[in-house]
Design a protein around this nucleic acid. Structure first.
Lengths: 176, 176
DNA sequence: CGGAATTGTTTTAAGCCTAAAATGTTTTTC
DNA sequence: GAAAAACATTTTAGGCTTAAAACAATTCCG
């Protein structure tokens, strides 16, 4: 049996590798599967965390996430800071904050120096409740990832960092 | 300087390593960071895909996802099949399907053999539109993951498969 | 200075999403 | 066969989410 020649498509691609303007549709099935798997993992874990937060603390996941951002910022954050960090729309944050102020978890005041800006902070109650929830939350996450070895955790971290960078680059290409 | 002794906590853990019922709070910071990174990647890519679907095709991501499920099932699916596959609530699917039937993309009929069951399928229009969108969608995904080498893609697939299994096991422990 | 662009937030309209209760149907069990 | 359990879907009530438009305050710049 003779050694196989390169497939026709490969030849075309080799000739045309600079522009990549090949007429043959390339196969991206692997990337697609990877994306679906990534989405499945996230949805699975997110749903689990959402359910536990509701059952144990009667709190929603977005509220918890917002409090988590504020816990890391003792001097408070502006709404647009929060919006960028949480990667959600401005209007979304407005409503979320409204409800958390209402329930006494957040304090909100207009900046002295720039009257456009709203600065929000955790109240004493908000911080206490968040800390209580966060401690338990951390054990849930540990449990959800429990079967991964420390080495696998590190490798996954590395690959996800690469994924994030790749996706950000791709997004920037579209919206420069 | 003498060689350092093992820290007290480590001794306790060694003695008690079988039950792991140590009073000292264990450190799960790595798993927590991993989870946040996973979530960031998914949110980033999901947002990008959502925006492109809207701009190019004026369609929402959930509609696209639902059509994707049906494209793989030429004989149709029941609502609860769809709900399980998409990992969303039943009521959510009801509304989504309602709108897609309204717009002519889906056909819905009550099963002959079991009058509880609704079977939905893509219409000719729905299938044609989905195929058109899916082709482009695939290139977006490929682009978003473009900086990963084929080897990294495979390794990420493997680690996410392990993650999914771990999370499912953890979820099952709680809801047997 | 004063108009123009920019920035930060809110509002609006529409759709997505969930948990839980309600409804209708089929299967199980006694 | 009738009551009970299980199943598939819909409804309900409330919250989340987005994109786009509107509003308000600041900064830029000629």
């Amino acid at each position: 049996m003779p050694a196989p020649l390169p497939a026709v498509n490969d030849c075309i691609e080799m000739l045309d590798s600079e522009t990549k303007a090949v007429e043959t549709p390339e196969d991206h099935a692997d990337e697609l599967r990877l994306w679906l798997r990534l989405l499945t993992c996230t949805t699975l874990i997110e749903g689990e965390v959402r359910g536990r937060l509701r059952q144990r603390f009667d709190v929603t996941l977005p509220r918890f996430d917002l409090m988590a951002q504020l816990d890391k910022a003792p001097d408070g954050m502006t709404l647009s800071d929060v919006s960028k960090r949480m990667m959600v729309s401005n209007g979304n944050v407005t409503g979320l904050v409204e409800r958390l102020v209402e329930s006494g978890h957040l304090d909100r005041r207009t900046s002295e120096t720039d009257r456009r800006v709203q600065v929000i902070r955790l109240t004493k109650l908000g911080r206490a409740e968040f800390r209580r929830m966060a401690a338990e939350h951390e054990t849930w996450i540990a449990d959800l990832f429990a079967d991964l070895t420390p080495k696998e955790v590190r490798e996954l971290m590395r690959l996800l960092a690469r994924t994030k960078a790749s996706a950000q680059k791709s997004a920037a290409r579209r919206r420069p």
